[in-house]
Structures are given as C-alpha cells and as structure tokens.
Nucleic acid binder design. Structure first.
Lengths: 348, 348
DNA sequence: ATCTCTTCGGAGAGCGCTCTCACGGGTGGT
DNA sequence: ACCACCCGTGAGAGCGCTCTCCGAAGAGAT
C-alpha cells in the first residue's frame, strides 16, 4: 500500500547518485544551472535525461511556496461561459500571458453556491499562487473570500463594492467604459444628430452604469425618456428600441451599450422602415466581430480589446506575485483601465 | 526573503498546540475523525475554526501522492473549444462528476505544439492525479505522453491507433456510433426508402468511420456513388448533398453523420424543391438541441448523451485511480460504449 | 482482583525538494 | 612566497503533512 504499484519516479537523490554529485548540485542544474561548472552540469543533465527525471511539483511547492499555477474563476453558469465569446477571448489572452511565463492556467467553473464553497477551499489550500476572478454580479463573495485567504487576486471588470479601503486595494482590469461612451456620443453629435437616445445594459452591472455615465457626461440634460434599459440580449435591445421610438418618435440617433443589443435595435428599425444611418444613426459597444461586422448595415461601435484585457489581468497578477516575493518595501500594483477606440462602419 | 510578508498560515502544529493534543490527532480529525473520541474531536474542530486552519495541499500531496485534481486536456484550437457545444456539454458532465467526488477540474487548453510540450511537463510533474484527454485527431502524441509519464488517462472517443497491446489497455468512452448508424438506416428502410445515401464525416476521425461502418452493416451493397464525405460543417453537408443529388437524382433518403451537416443538406434540398420527408427523408446524428430542434422540418436524429459521456469519463478515471491505490490484484477497468437512441421528429 | 483484549492518542520517521551555510581549492595581490 | 578572497560543491536542516508503530488506559473475562 505504501509502495506505489508502478515503478516509482526517479528523485533528485537518484539523479545525484547517477551523476556522482550531491543533491544540491542537481537541484542547481535543474533550476537554471547558475554556479555549476560546465562539464559537471553536462554530466548532471545527462543523468537527468537517462533517468527521465521530472521534478516533483508538490515537494517543490512545499518549500518554495510557489506553484506555477493561476486559477481563473468564472462565477457564471457554464452555459453562459461557453456561449459568450467575451469569455473565450479573455481566456485566450490570459492563457497566452500565463504560458509565456510558464504558469499553468487552472480553470474553475463555479455553478451553484455549493461549488463556490469548494472553490474557496481550493484557492485557500494552496493549489494556486493567485486567482483571476470574473464575477459580474454585485453580491459575489468570491473576491472577499480570496482576499481573506490571502490569495492575490485580480478581478475582471470594475468591482461594484462601495469605495472602502479594501475596495481601493483591490486590483482589477477594466476598459474605459465611460470614456468610450463619451466618444460614441460625441461621434453622433459630430454627425449633426441632436436627439440621441441610449439603450443601457442592466444597471446592476458596473459596465452598464459607466457607459450610461459617459453618455450623460456629454449630454447632461438628456430627459429620462431618451434612456431605456436593456439586458445585453438582442431581444432586450429590440424591446428598448421599441420603447424609445414610442416615447420619442423623432429621435435621430441611438447609442446602445452593446453590439448585441444594437443588433436587436437595428432589426426593429428595419421593421419600422427607418433607414440606418439616414434616418437614425446607430452605434454599439464592444466590437464583437461576430456581431458588429455582420449586421445590416455593419455596425459603428466602440472597440474594447478583450483579449488584451485578459493578457493584462494575467500580467498584473504575475507582477503582484513578484512584488510579494520580493523586497519588503512592496510598491503595490494598481488597477488598469484600457482604452477604447471608435470603429466607424456604416451605421453611424 | 524566507519569511513570507503576510502572516503565515496556521499549520497542523499550531492547531495541535491550541487544542492541547498532538499533530497526529489533529490530522485524524481533519481527515474524517475516525478513531478520535467525541469531546476531543470537538475541541480540535474548535481550534481549527478559531485559527482558520486549511490543510496545505502541497504537503499533503507530497506524502499521499494524491492531488485531488484531474486535468482535462483539450487539444483543439481555443476557438473550436469555445464555439462547439459538444465540448461544453462534455465538460459539464465531467465537472459534475468530479465535484461530486471532491476533485478539482483543471482545464488545459493546448493550442500549438509548444503548448503541448508544456502540458506534458505539467502532467508528469504531478500536478494532477489523472487526465481526461480529448484528441480528435489521429496523430496526437498526448495520450502516449501521458502513458509514458504514468498518468492514468481516459480518452474521449475511440482512439485511432492500431490495435496493439498498448491500445487495448487504453481507456476511453465513446458512444455506439456504429449501432446508432445502423438504427438510423434501419429506420429509413422501415419507412420504405430504398435508395439511401450517406453523408459521412471526415474519415480521419474514428466517429465518422464507425458511422459509415454502421451504414454499411445494414446496406453492404451500397455503391460508392451513394456515399459523400463532408466535414461536420453545414457547408460541407450542403456540398455533399449537392454531389449526391447530381450522382443519384432519384435517391429517397439521406443519413448524415451529424445534425450540423444534415442542416446544410436540408437547405440544399429546400433550394432544389425537394420536399422533406415526402420526397427525401433526412436523418442526422448527435441530437444537438440547438440544431436538430430548429431545422425546418425538425430533424429526426440519433441521440447521444454527451453530458453523460463526460460524466462517465470522469467516473472511469476516478475508479481507475481507486483501483491503482487499492489492493495489488488490480482488476483493470475497461472502456465504455454508451448507447444511442433514435429520436423521431419530422424529417424522417 | 488479575490478566488479556481493545481502543485511543502520541512520538517520530519520512515524502522530495530548496536553500543556507561551511568548507576546500584555486586565483590575485603584495 | 604568503594571505585574503571568491567560487564551486556538499552537508544538512527543514517545508507541513500522513501514517506506522507503541504505549497507556479502559473494558471485559475468568
């Protein structure tokens, strides 16, 4: 029972014996070989090769307190995770950055609250060096859990929590939602539009709030009738568009808080015989290629580089880990806001 | 440098001191509490609570040689992984089963061959207890790598390798592609169809081959003109359908090796004015809800329970691990073939 | 009341690795 | 030629945990 059935994997000790050196020397060679003379190092490497030695990660972690693995926690129902291209792109960016620094990506999908507890245990028990958390909803306890467990964490998107001290120490990466929204509205103004409406996202999500705020920055006197709340689905966008047309029949431009909602709005406008952009200019947000490029007409939108945001999240976390391990006078890293860019296509 | 900046996490030792018992006793309590008298156990649990003790996984792994984590390796470009509902369902099944046994799912996406090497190292270095590998293509080295590293592995789908001894010891979960195909064809025969064509998947994938074999089991004398190869895309299905109509204008039924290809075929038939199922009956494979239920007419198909297959993969792996740890007279587990079921809708 | 059997709890040996420290032999300066 | 110094190597102490002994104590049998 104590002896594993298969031939046990070779240890450092075995390699050392084979090469006729000490454990310490083999360790040095395996970890970069600094401070070991050429020929000796070569002999060690040969022994490693012959025995097919691979370091035991658990033993290594036990002493270094480093794992080489980063958790990506997605607190969304799996269906959402797999269907929304947003996650795909973000994960790709993260994956790329982590690989480049030889860190493994450990993806944790948490469905129900029971899962959440298990994920919490996983994080605290030292499986990973840090965590990247996507929690789009306000009440999520996971980031708090991670903080209490002392697991360095970077959040995807601005947290919704009140602006306490803890909040200010929280790292996150988000795009400049507010600035992007301002650019969108200014673009519409530049086209000579004067009755500009906004289709907002669900206002319990910070991104929606920020985009609405950006809209209001430029058009502070907009009456409430010109703002309708959608839910980031095409249907929600369509419903909002209908409501807006009803309330303000002569509007001449719409800024939707997402491309997907804009596509729903476009459908309604087409049905109603309003020409885009001639009668009504439409502008979206996200620049989801699969959406914005395929609408009719192709959608003018505010581009955010989602993959880059993923990359930055990973980078930020890795840098934090480095600082933590380094000298005590820790200059903390800070949140990152990525820029957005207006992409002009046919709809505005 | 050797002292972590944050307050160090409490160890077993600390809990033991607090509870006034030995390390061993605390360990026993933490691991189920067998053989510790009630009141003492309670005292220990209180100490654990007060100190917020969480076991150090690395230390635990070092001695138990168990990790509580299973890798899911997807050797596909990420775009495919995130867009194909097949993976989503399978991962959901896996996730469910692993969670139920308190194992963590570690998702590894391998894009290029460079990644592959890194994944190989990850597997061998003892980060995980076992691996579930999806490698749809014949030449993939990953399962071989895993075998050499001594990492217990279960493959998703029948392996393509030649039927060697090693192959026979390989565990996998697949659905009864051949039997399902037979059912499909028999159903068409039962409807009185006599000129039945087959749109096959890419024949470098075992699933495609098996489905074609099933087709041939029932109709051994089918001329080559009645079989066209597609590529599991709607366009491929459409092209294959066109070729078949050209070669055999009077065919009265088509069995497509996937719902997605069948949807392409349906489009072509509609364009050509062939009524389904009156003129030509169509039957698919997979029962992808998002496809089969939404075609016009709704698609008769062969259902495979993909989520269940994922669950079974996880189960098979966990059982293998158990056997490996258990008594030496190891009765090996064996591959699993899940049943398929004919789902009759309107198209046949 | 004595002896044996059972159960509970403690002591201690590692798991495989990293890292500090001490030491030997070479180099350069004088 | 000597001393100071440094660089390359080995010895050894843990990292935090599990698990196998063993002894102590309580229960039951005679």
């Amino acid at each position: 029972m104590s002896v594993p059935p298969a031939a046990s994997r070779p240890t450092l000790e075995a390699v050392a014996a084979r090469a006729g050196v000490s454990r310490a020397t083999v360790s040095r060679v395996v970890n970069g070989g600094a401070g070991v003379r050429g020929p000796l190092a070569a002999r060690v490497r040969a022994a490693v090769e012959e025995l097919g030695y691979v370091p035991n990660q658990a033993a290594r972690t036990l002493v270094t307190r480093r794992n080489g693995a980063i958790a990506v926690v997605v607190a969304e129902p799996q269906s959402r995770f797999f269907s929304d291209p947003f996650f795909a792109q973000q994960v790709r960016g993260i994956s790329r950055e982590l690989s480049a620094h030889d860190n493994q990506l450990v993806l944790l999908l948490t469905g129900g609250p029971a899962d959440r507890e298990r994920v919490g245990r996983f994080l605290t028990s030292g499986h990973v060096d840090g965590a990247l958390i996507f929690s789009l909803h306000a009440d999520d306890s996971l980031p708090v859990l991670a903080r209490k467990a002392g697991v360095p964490t970077v959040i995807g998107g601005r947290p919704t929590w009140p602006d306490t001290d803890a909040r200010r120490r929280t790292l996150y990466v988000d795009c400049d939602n507010r600035g992007g929204a301002r650019d969108a509205v200014r673009h519409l103004l530049g086209l000579g539009r004067r009755r500009i409406a906004h289709i907002a996202g669900p206002l319990d999500q910070p991104a929606s709030v920020d985009r609405l705020d950006g809209f209001r920055d430029v058009l502070p006197d907009t009456p409430a009738a010109l703002v309708a709340e959608g839910d980031f689905t095409p249907e929600g966008g369509a419903r909002a568009m209908e409501a807006l047309l009803e309330r303000v029949p002569d509007l001449d431009a719409v800024f939707a808080a997402s491309d997907v909602m804009a596509s729903g709005a476009l459908r309604v406008l087409r049905t109603r015989g309003r020409r885009v952009p001639d009668d009504i200019a439409v502008i979206g947000f996200d620049d989801m290629v699969s959406v914005a490029e395929w609408t009719d007409p192709p959608l003018t939108t505010i581009r955010q580089d989602i993959e880059e945001m993923g990359r930055l999240m990973a980078q930020l976390l890795l840098r934090t880990l480095e600082l933590q391990a380094g000298p005590d006078g820790t200059a903390a890293a800070s949140p990152i806001i990525t820029p957005t860019r207006l992409v002009v296509r046919a709809s505005a």
